[in-house]
Amino acid sequence: MQAELLINAIIAGLLLGGFYAAVTVGISISFGILDIVNIAHPAFIILGSYIAYICNQTFGVDPILTAIIALPAFYALGAAVYQVYYASFEKRGQDALRGLAFFFGLLFVTEVMLILVFGVDYRYVQAAYIEYTWHISFMDIPFRMLVPCVMGLLMVGLLQLFLSRTFTGRAIMAVSQDQLALQLMAADPIKVKRTAFAIAIATASIAGALLIVIQPVEPSVGREYIGRVFAICVLGGLQSLPGTVIAAMLLGVVESITATFYGPSWAPAVSFGFLLLTLAFRPAGLLGR
């Protein structure tokens, strides 16, 4: 009985991990690669959830489809936020302190606006696959978890291909590692960074839709994800997407096992505890040098 419980917890954890990878990939790009501490990312994810919710409620559109349609809007939002950030902080050489406060304020403003518009009630979406669960002997694979996991991994995989195979992708990687190479490629670093940041925010659209498929959402849910995404990002070695996926899976499994055997109220402490310990003892990440 214990073994079956454990196996089910591990399966649920791996499924959760695929979703966590999708949530974190935006941070891996903005924080890991660009060194912009965008702690407002979870707020953008919740925004994505609510957009999926509205379209689902009024037109009955599938949440994930909505997210894909909304990608250009999120891309534009990201580009705009980067432009403000660049003009106010990066260009002036302002200390990181104010940049942090800026994103913190943004997180807060987004959350409060959502509360003002939608209230603090939990909202959820309807789609055919959400109710369905796949039973293989004693193992349960709920589609509510499977679909986000597959979609999340798909998105991270595509991004990895983009970063390693295309010109723009390589320029983005070079922004963090090698300014000289970037100059030799004749790429404008600010434009490259803006593109990268906009892509990072665009991932929030998809991640938000996946989130509301998995669980009902209210505006403050985003805060739970701040620690989680940074824990995963740091564990994964900051700028490596494969590292992010592995770390996400690991955290998903540990959280799931904790929730199964010790109760869900302990689950948040796991990710944040993980983060604290990683920061203290292995700041280069699990896969880091």
Partner: peptide, 18 residues
Amino acid sequence: GAFFAIATLALAVVLQTL
């Protein structure tokens, strides 16, 4: 500095859970 800031966020949640 940025890691310190994130760590303090994490600390808040850990303490709240406790």
